[in-house]
Structure formats: structure tokens, C-alpha cells
Design a protein around this nucleic acid. Structure first.
Length: 299
DNA sequence: CATAGATCCTGTATGC
DNA sequence: TGCATACAGGATCTAT
């Protein structure tokens, strides 16, 4: 459930359930799920066992669980970091329930029969342990997320910097929206939805946009993500659910994403689809004017 | 250096 | 029914 609204729904659910609990046992069922943990499954499990989790945090689409150890005062120095990739789920399930087909990592806790399961069909997601470092604003951030920008809903998001950097790039604006080092949390769905709301074509180059265009686009990003968050995120199927296995409703509010052939709700033109980065882009050919084709390098 | 495209994986839907 | 192909919410590597 990979974009900001879906990850935030998961973070909220985890925070409510896991805060203050102590890890009793960890089983890695698929090594690929912890491939970023270079010391391997044995070290992964050993370092988590006995640690307690004071809260759950997020930067963009990354989630992390700070690890507090018995007898150590002060802020946590390490964290269990997670990314859901394309199909990852963090589920709170009964230990006695039959395990999910794509269960990759299971974590048991003291004083409860509920477990935290990392389930991931496509295995693009994963978990690993990372150091926590100063985030430059009085908080902590995993080393592994230091390159990720704040998201546009974050009060400390630097809008002027986003606008400045966007306008320096000869890159399509949709690709820039997906670049997590510029602004985080935006994925393929909300990029298309925000571009539709801002009436901008995703193939416009960053360098072709006026400051005001980028500001309008950012506002559209904030609105669409806020609305999606309020609806529990976007779910098309059972791959994208909250920690209790429940779907969000925002798929009913999509105006562009997945709407190829259907009329644009603003102007009635048929929404179109084209391949983009091995996925798809959806847009209204009337509301979102396409740029002239880029001149080829060879002329 | 900057940019555009490919790639990691497993599953489902669709068409022949 | 069987098989091939296209496509899927992301991040990152690699050619040019």
C-alpha cells in the first residue's frame, strides 16, 4: 500500500498497537525480505529480540520502529526500518490463525497472542535495522532515509526549495513528483491525480513550469493526499489494506488514475492512458494540455 | 553530470 | 484448456 496516505494509515494502526510492546521472537521466512540487512537473518532476529518499541514513525513511504533496550536511557539509537514496496503489508494477526501465503517475517511480542506479520507478494518491500541520526530539526531519522525529502503535508516541508529544484530540471514533471529526494510520499496514483487537479500534463518539463504552476501542483498534491488519508487510502484489492486487513475507499474518488476511456468529470473528454516507466499514466487530453514533443538530440 | 530506460519479483487478467 | 503477453501501488541501478 505504497503511497503516503496508505503508509500513514498503516503507521497509525501500528502506533496504536505496538507502542510500548517488547519483541519476544522474530522469524525470517524469506531472506529476500531482509536483503538490506547485510548481517543476515540471525543477526536481524538477535538484535530485535528483547527490544521494545516506544513509537512508530514515518518519512515519505518509509516506516520505522525505534528500538529501545532494557537499561538504556535516552533516545533510541537504532530502528527497525520498513518499506512496503509494491505489495508489502504489516498486519496484526492472531498467532493461531493460518499463516498468509506470502508471510515473509513474523514478530511475536511479550504479553499478547497477537503477532506482527510482514506479508509481501512481490518482495520489493523489506525490513532492516539501521542507525538513527539527527534529522536537523530536533528529531531522529534512520540513516537509510537520510536522502528522502519531507512530504508535502509535513509542516517542515520546504516548498520554496521544491519549486526551485523542480524548475532547474529538464525532466518530466511526473517523474519529478515520483522523485522521493525532492518531495516524498507521492507515487503513481497520487501523481496522476494531482496533475489532473492542477491541469498540468505529466510530460511537461520541470524547467517549463512557472513558480505558480508548481505551487498549484503542490497544493493539489496536498489536497488529494489529505482526502485519501481521510478515506483510509486507496485499495483496489486485498493487497492494499490496513493493519487489520481492511481496505480504504479512495479508489471511488479517483478522477484520472485507472480511468482510461471514461469521461473526464470536468470536461467530458475521454481519459487517456500511456506507458510510463513500465507502468501507466492517465490524463485528460483536454484539461491537461500536452507539451510539444521534445526535439530529438539529433534534430 | 544528467537523463531515460531497465530491472528486481509474483501474481492476475486477457487474448489467441 | 493451455500458453503467451501485458500489467501492477516502488526504488534504484545502468547505459548513454
Amino acid at each position: 500500500m505504497p503511497e503516503l496516505p496508505e503508509v500513514e494509515v498503516v503507521r497509525t494502526g501500528l502506533q496504536r498497537w505496538v507502542s510500548g510492546r517488547t519483541i519476544r521472537r522474530v522469524d525470517v521466512l524469506h531472506p529476500r525480505a531482509i536483503r538490506r540487512h547485510s548481517e543476515g537473518p540471525g543477526d536481524f532476529s538477535a538484535r530485535l529480540t528483547g527490544a521494545s518499541i516506544p513509537y512508530v514513525s514515518r518519512r515519505g513511504k518509509y516506516l520505522w520502529f525505534p528500538l529501545a533496550s532494557e537499561g538504556h536511557q535516552g533516545p533510541a539509537e537504532q530502528a527497525l526500518m520498513g518499506h512496503l514496496g509494491m505489495s508489502g503489508q504489516l498486519l496484526i494477526v492472531s498467532a493461531s490463525a493460518p499463516p498468509h501465503r506470502h508471510l515473509r517475517v513474523r514478530m511475536a511480542f511479550e504479553e499478547t497472542d497477537q503477532e506482527l506479520h510482514f506479508v509481501d507478494q512481490r518482495t520489493f518491500g523489506g525490513l532492516h535495522i539501521t542507525a538513527l541520526v539527527d534529522d536537523g530539526a530536533g528529531g531522529l531519522l534512520p540513516d537509510a532515509a537520510a536522502h528522502i525529502a519531507r512530504d508535502p503535508l509535513d509542516p517542515l516541508f520546504d516548498e520554496a526549495e521544491f519549486i526551485r529544484r523542480t524548475r532547474l530540471r529538464d525532466v518530466e514533471i511526473k517523474r519529478l513528483l515520483l522523485d522521493q529526494t525532492l518531495a516524498s510520499g507521492i507515487g503513481n496514483i497520487y501523481a496522476d491525480e494531482a496533475l489532473w487537479r492542477a491541469r498540468l500534463h505529466g510530460r511537461r518539463l520541470g524547467s517549463s513550469l512557472r513558480r505558480a504552476d508548481v505551487a498549484v501542483l503542490l497544493q493539489a498534491v496536498r489536497e488529494v493526499m489529505s482526502e485519501a488519508l481521510a478515506q483510509g487510502g486507496t485499495s483496489f484489492d486485498e493487497l492494499y489494506v490496513n493493519v487489520n486487513g481492511e481496505s480504504g475507499y479512495f479508489d471511488r474518488s479517483l478522477e484520472a488514475y485507472g480511468q482510461a476511456g471514461l469521461p473526464c468529470s470536468r470536461c467530458g473528454a475521454q481519459i487517456r492512458r500511456e506507458a510510463f516507466m513500465n507502468r501507466s499514466s492517465f490524463w485528460c487530453p483536454s484539461c491537461q494540455r500536452a507539451p510539444r514533443r521534445r526535439p530529438s538530440v539529433r534534430g
